[in-house]
Design a binder for these strands. Sequence first.
RNA 1: GGGCGGUUAGCUCAGUUGGUUAGAGCGUCUGCCUUACAAGCAGAAGGUCACCCGUUCGAGCCGGGUACCGCCCACCA
Length: 974
Amino acid sequence: MSLGYKAGRPQTSGWKDSTRKHVRPEIPKVYSPEAIEPRWARYWVDEKLYRPAEGNGSARFSLSLPPPNITGSLHMGHMLEHTEIDILMRWHRMRGENVLWLPGMDHASISTQMVVERELGREALPDLEPGAAARRAWQREGQRRRLEMGPEKFLERCWQWKQENGDTIRRQMERMGASVDWTRARFTMDPAYSRAVIEVFVRLYHEGLIYRGQYIVNWCPRCGTAVSDLEVAHEERPGQLWYIRYPLEGGTGSISVATTRPETMLGDTAIAVNPSDNRYRSMIGRKVILPLLDRVIPVVGDEFVDPAFGTGAVKVTPAHDPNDFGIGMRHNLPSITVMDFDARMTAAAGPYSGLSREQAREAVLRDLQAANLIEKIEGYKLNVGICDRCKTIVEPLLSKQWFMRMRPLAEPAIRAVEDGRTRVVPDNSRKVYLDWMYRIHDWCISRQLWWGHRIPAWYCDGCDEVVVAASAPDACPKCGKAGKSGWHQDEDVLDTWFSSGLWPFVTLGWPEQTEDLKRFYPNDLMIMGFDILFFWAARMIMLGLKFTNEVPFRELYIHALVCDAERQKMSKTKGNVIDPIEITEKYGTDAVRFALASSAAPGTDIAFSDDKVQSYRAFANKIWNAGRFILMNLGNLPELAVRQLGVALEPIPEVGFDALPVRSSEFGVRGLEGHGNEQLRTEQLRTEQLLIDRWIFSRLAAVTHEMNEALAGYRFHEAAHTIYHFFWHEFCDWYLEWVKPEITERSDEPRPTAAWVNMARAFEAALHLLHPFMPFITEELWHQLPHSGNARSISLTRFELVNPQAGDVVSEKQFETLRELIVAARNVKAEMGLQKEKPSAQVATEDLRILEIFRSHQHAILRLAGLEALNFARGRLPAEASPVPLSSGCDLRLFYERPVDVVAERTRLEREIPKAKQQLERIERQLANESFRSRAPQDVVTGAERRRAELVDQFQRLEQSLARLGAAPSSPQN
RNA sequence: GGGCGGUUAGCUCAGUUGGUUAGAGCGUCUGCCUUACAAGCAGAAGGUCACCCGUUCGAGCCGGGUACCGCCCACCA
């Protein structure tokens, strides 16, 4: 949409081109992010602004982006994560640190393979009505087509998918304003990255930390691959506990076992009891007959069996249950695999061979029933493991896989977190991490998939030799067979987290000792969601320590989950997903970012809604219009003045925030002294101007300090609220309103006033504080302010963010006194329905210093409160005047003739009086308490006393007012 | 089975070491198109801080317990 308005990049800004009066283009009243944001997004990327500087000069701050999966486009969770990171990156960058934010993407082995399959399925079956059923059908069909087309063609499709989605993700990130260094972007299947992955595998293997073996793994029959423990979700489902009789060999008696999975009995190779269980001790060593198959199996004693559960005897199926596998190992039992990788019964299942696991269960139960071997059936809630990816029930199966030995790797990773070399925030995530690490199990790292890093294991065609190496060996060390061709590589690929676990150091060039690795490793920070704490954070810490002897990052901040307005997790199936691009296009990136940041309290999930974004769009508009006001009043300044202003406004890195005029004694503009002061019309206006300028810079210093503290603790919401409140309710509502006459009345004069310069500088400081949250609008407005020299970006302009000394207590106090008076006057006007009128007012107090403050700022008071005149009296005002008491010890009254609405006034008083009374009673009780007086700190006690005095005063006045109302003859109203 | 978090205004949520009168946004009500902004300005109403007990001069905050909600972990069939 064209607005007839084109604000410039620095190169094209009109400020330096114009020779005489600068003519501002018309700036639209309503902020249109779509006219601004894409332009700056492009500029930041094209100019490569976010490459860190060369050399080791300044402090550095580094972070590697958690690489988004190339499975699809970015969702709100990413946007939150990227917003939080970007805020911190921009914040650190403005402090002059050398910031590296390294972006990249993850090949996401299993997830990508699944989406690509589904895509193939969709192509084959284009007419299905989209939905859960169609997804399943597409998946099935896609899988079939994958097998049909073979690895080579399928992987081609995967790369094509990567290309397309990688581009989409990158565009999204650019549009969100992520200040990453694209020149360092990495992908987990880049050639160099893949080489590093293989090297890690080979090294771990030769150190004995990776091994291959036949163990029980979680098998997803639908995905057709093993998955790790972490990829299995548990779901409670109603089920049954069947008690089955196993007859003792020799004809007399039986042992009953309880099971939730009767179909696995076909693979039973023993019955186990606890050796300390008196009921069964004599049975150990005897034999039972496995029903249905009539196999003779032993009774063994094993501590694992819980005598209190079920019958105290348990069937042992080593090939289909991890616990039973353990028992089988301990007792040297055979393993009989009765279910294959498709979850169908094998030949070993005898008559049940070929049935699905569900059919087999039915058949087994039916046959047991017929043989009268079912003793009883109980209802039982059981936990079934389901595949994280496809929700199919996983099958524990015996299978030959590759594993990583975790204990030796975990130990240093535990210590690193315990002693704080990596600090985990919030603290409860630290505990969760440690608990998991203490109980860590070996990690199944092989996957029966095609998309991913092929396992570098080579099997000799001539014998059973296995060699683990980056490439096929020249000759077989065992059978002596020569040549690289006589080997076939392991078909499997690595779990995707194996490669992401190396992210922080491989992205910087490891195993080469690159400059980047030296400069930016360890990373200063890592930010991620809680859901991948084990998957990713834990593995990065373990592998980082293993291969670099350093923690991969010094801090780990765990961010919240983005939920919908009803606090429900966003999910495609629920249909409550908010698309970041859509909402960004609707309200602007800045507004969405601010909405996210303002809700991002550590440890709490975010309820995200359109409403919130809308209110921050309003905020962006507010900022825009404040800028508009400031720039409009610059419009008439001649070029010379603009030049000089440019010099004056250029931030000076060494001095930074100190250069703001709050503390400078001359209180003028450097290079323009003398002129500015002359322009102040009267002593009075000058005093007023002085106070408000001092006040705003004092507030800026305080706000900066607060934001520093908040961001250092990842309290994004606090920092966002602080700047929001400051900008809107202090800078706009008070500062701009206060200086307005000085600014607008002077705009026709040939020189900029000190007032304008200070305003512009305060505004610029506010833009700096806002910039990390709202990078686009701040960049735009900053460029429109006059700067000299090569001002490339607000984000690269150093802003010294710490200066606690800049606080000006006296000015803040004076300002508060004035503000209270103005608000009280407005209040009376509103309550009395005098908003269109300009009544006169009187203020009275014993404190002459306060009267003097009022007197010397009366222009501002009259204008901002909407009063005609203000006069001053010494002492207190009589009750008949219905004075309003102020905390500065003054009484304020307004003169007006409008008849008072007696009923409304009485209602108000009757509501106020009990409240005041209650408060008064409470504070009197407190002050009457001797131990309060003796034990509480002095300032708390005096504070309470002062408060009591106020309350007494207020209470009396209220009562008097009510009494007067009652006494007065009730005159007919209107 | 173990662990963690939540319960504060009509709604969504802040409230970092205990201390004067518990805050914000949205929504509601009143009055205003005041030359930066109606996506705005000025003002107002609205809370037994889930419940019980304790520690303390003093508790939304600390300790113990109860209720409801949510999340994570878990190889007892």
